[in-house]
């Protein structure tokens, strides 16, 4: 499968091609996108992401393998962008292929939940006011 951390804009097509298989009748493709109002109420101009790739990539692969084991041998690809992102740009792309759509959606949800909790990537919110703040993900289950 495909697991990457990149500074380039994200494109779902290569991920979809990476997971496609004759055994799979469903492909779920997900993009996480920079939105104007983050978890706070101040408008955001953009986000910057940084990663510890030597730790993040193995964890992304482990999450993909778990998702496959738990959800019908799903085939998973995850790519995360780092660097400076503007409003509307995608920060993370996930594609999942599985025999049926239920497990494909579940595997995609699982991959995103685990990524946010376990993968060594950080984001900084840049507010329209000119201020900036590191924004941790909410604790699991919140």
């Amino acid at each position: 499968m495909k697991y990457e951390i990149t500074r380039e804009p994200l494109d779902l097509e290569p991920l979809i091609e990476a997971v496609r298989s004759d055994a799979c009748g469903a492909i779920v493709a997900f993009l996480g996108v920079v939105r104007e109002l983050g978890d706070g109420d101040q408008p955001v101009d953009g986000l910057s992401y940084e990663a510890y790739p030597e730790m993040a990539l193995p964890e992304m692969r482990a999450i993909g393998a778990e998702a496959s084991r738990k959800f019908g041998e799903a085939r998973v690809a995850i790519v995360h962008r780092i660097g400076d992102l503007r409003l509307g740009e995608a920060s993370v792309a996930v594609a999942v292929a599985a025999p049926h759509r239920g497990v494909a959606f579940d595997a995609c949800e699982y991959a995103m939940d685990e990524l946010k909790a376990r993968v060594s990537i950080w984001k900084k919110e840049h507010f329209r006011s000119g201020e900036a703040r590191w924004r941790p993900n909410a604790a699991p289950g919140v």
Binding site: L115, K116, A117, R118, I121, W122, P136
Partner: peptide
Amino acid sequence: LAFMPPFGGG
């Protein structure tokens, strides 16, 4: 040795 704040990916 890496020192890491809470993660914020996604």
